[in-house]
Design a protein around this nucleic acid. Sequence first.
DNA 1: GCAAATTAATGATTTATTCAAG
DNA 2: CTTGAATAAATCATTAATTTGC
Lengths: 202, 202
Amino acid sequence: MSPAGSSRWSPTTEQLMILEELYRSGIRTPSASQIQQITTHLSFYGRIEGKNVFYWFQNHKARDRQKLRRKLTKQLQLQQQQLQLHHCQLTPDITNHFFAYSPSSSTQDFPFYNPPTFLFQGGSSNTSEQALNCAWNVHNLQSNLVAREDVTFYNNGWSTPVDVNNQPSSCCTSRPLKTLDLFPLTTTRTDEDCTAPPPKEL
Amino acid sequence: MSPAGSSRWSPTTEQLMILEELYRSGIRTPSASQIQQITTHLSFYGRIEGKNVFYWFQNHKARDRQKLRRKLTKQLQLQQQQLQLHHCQLTPDITNHFFAYSPSSSTQDFPFYNPPTFLFQGGSSNTSEQALNCAWNVHNLQSNLVAREDVTFYNNGWSTPVDVNNQPSSCCTSRPLKTLDLFPLTTTRTDEDCTAPPPKEL
DNA sequence: GCAAATTAATGATTTATTCAAG
DNA sequence: CTTGAATAAATCATTAATTTGC
């Protein structure tokens, strides 16, 4: 797996498992520093860049929403059919139920199943933490990415240095978080609905 | 104008004029290197970052499309009304005309009115040039941006160094374009429709 | 004239859609 | 068919125009 020269990133099994676990733990739109940390950690399991993490969360969230939406519309169709069968001719404002279910608040889109403590050591509320993750800000931490002027991407193994120490000198104005330890390696999760096995350290 | 400390960038008159001229000249989704050059040049007229250029083109293009769309729908409504008035009851497949006008090909969306020669010195076709400009790639050239961990943005005048020399060492594998002169500084423009007055130096 | 109040423009983010690799 | 990658559309949020009452 993960051939040396493929045009797009394909996650390793370990990478995917960790990403899914982070997703289950409540992370939807990771901030710039979060993406940095995740990338750093996952680069141990194979070639990966920050944008891969960025896109992965974006796609996963979107396709979760999409899946949910389809399921709800299908349920609604069934309900309406059954209502018609039962000769109940109430004016069908049931459609409002659908919109009530759909994530209408665009800022915060999901309750945290299992709040990842390691990500909130700075003490800031999650809203302010998760507000700063457009593609531009997220990429601010990526320093050693080639601008991909031509399609010769870097397939020199996964020697991508990722450089946690190479923080911009002007960062951390009044924040206690510098290279805060994102993966504590002590799996203190309660495995509420984590059907996946714990990540097997290769 | 352009107060030293505002939360969002507001373009100077000169910057706006140059951006609009570039837009008129056919640039819609500038590549990473193009954005780099434009930013470098425009930073002379005031504080600016690469993402500002990126967003500007994105918004300008989108709102152009939107404007065109509204105009066309309005025209169509008028046409349909007139058709009804004239008792012509042709089946109105006129709606197809609308979709024919709307930019359906998402890859290349506009003909070049006035091909900007300074941007195509590398000899590559415009399609390959303009294909590599997602937010991630575009931002690769931005080196000294703070990750905006808190809202303390940098209002230290426009001393942003922009750093043309600080190119990643692995860039320019086989490209002749290194800091290729985007703006030739010889204003050989014909001032076709530049109705704006010359920029008043504040 | 001049600010407070309103409205219009537009910079910045997020979400939906689409393309394409595998 | 799944999914990484990229783009377009929709939305949010802040600034500039402008209106309005004084």
